[in-house]
């Protein structure tokens, strides 16, 4: 186990280093001088030279990278070009909103996807199975931002059940906070629940064919205990991996869904960064999103090894 954990940790660190090189290169890869690209052509040569020196652009590239990486580890993501605030602070203030959105979408996805997949597998090839899987397929094809628009159109603009857009901190008003969360979380969660239900169904089908499930039935266990005590636990393994991998979809989807609902999260910050050519901000958000994704998948792999002892001997 220890060897597997160490191996997996080293691999994750390697991936993060490669990712950091890419994110660092973000500014260097743009053709032209970074200073004029970000601040426009109308700079006096003196100011430009001053900025080049201040941002360390006159030093060798590897030196710039090391400085940038060391600063990153200290939590210094640089300064936003538009708002002149520290990027780390800008991102930090938006973490609660995006975390709530991601967790909300995940809860919806699991509460819908898991039971749907289980029922579909249990009643395989029945009308219920086909209906569930057809719904899942359609769910996969609907773009989250379009679903967001439709939900907003129906439940906010026509029925006035939920606010059209925005965000309220749960510390200020838990009820209003939840009302603001429901539609964006639904828009993001539906696609996710579709992939979770598909994965759960196929994993559950695999497990239900196994000998030990037949044994469990043969020794007279109740159907509920066979399913929940024996089958579900093993069927959960691949499903957990899918949930981990889908976090990438969730983070990416949050960018568009936050834009639809003017929800002040990290994804919206990325859109702001792009439209303002605020490269330190873009770098910071991309780095934070990717680190989160890598970390969650690391945790999923490690928990997988804990749940399934066969993994660690490979």
């Amino acid at each position: 186990m220890a060897r597997y954990v160490v191996h997996r940790l080293i691999q994750a660190v390697g991936v993060v280093l490669l990712v950091s090189i890419f994110v660092f290169a973000l500014i260097r890869l743009i053709p032209g001088n970074p200073v004029t690209i970000m601040l426009g052509e109308n700079l006096s040569p003196d100011v430009e030279r001053e900025l080049v020196r201040k941002w360390g652009l006159d030093r060798p590239v590897y030196e710039q990278y090391v400085t940038w990486l060391v600063n990153l580890f200290r939590g210094d993501f640089g300064q936003s070009i538009r708002t002149h605030e520290p990027v780390a602070q800008l991102i930090a203030t938006r973490i609660p909103a995006t975390s709530m959105l991601a967790v909300g979408a995940m809860i919806i996805a699991i509460c819908v996807g898991l039971p749907a997949g289980m029922v579909a597998a249990y009643k395989a090839n029945s009308g219920l199975d086909y209906a569930a899987m057809l719904t899942a397929l359609v769910g996969l094809c609907i773009p989250s931002f379009w679903l967001g628009l439709l939900l907003m159109l129906l439940f906010s603009l026509k029925l006035h059940w939920f606010p059209v857009s925005g965000y309220v901190s749960p510390l200020d008003d838990p009820g209003a906070s939840l009302r603001h969360l429901v539609l964006p979380a639904l828009a993001l969660g539906v696609g996710l629940s579709a992939s979770i239900s598909r994965m759960t169904r196929s994993a559950m089908l695999d497990v239900l064919r196994q000998d030990y499930v037949r044994t469990a039935r043969a020794k007279g266990l109740s159907e509920a205990r066979t399913i929940f005590g024996h089958a579900l636990r093993n069927a959960m393994l691949p499903t957990i991996t899918v949930i981990g991998l889908q976090l990438g979809f969730l983070l990416g989807g949050s960018v568009v869904v936050e834009e639809v609902f003017s929800y002040p999260g990290i994804g919206q910050l990325l859109v702001f960064g792009i439209s303002n050519r605020d490269y330190p901000l873009i770098q910071g958000v991309v780095m934070v999103f990717t680190l989160t994704f890598v970390l969650v998948n690391l945790l999923v792999d490690l928990s997988y090894a804990y749940l399934d002892p066969r993994i660690k001997y490979q």
């Binding site: 990712v19 792009i274 050519r277 990717t290």
Partner: peptide, 22 residues
């Protein structure tokens, strides 16, 4: 494959947006 791992480590749309930023 390690290089591919690094590319996959980015959430899809986020990577596409980052590339379009360049």
């Amino acid at each position: 494959m390690r290089f591919m791992d690094a590319v996959i480590a980015f959430p899809e749309i986020v990577l596409a947006i980052a590339i379009l930023a360049i």
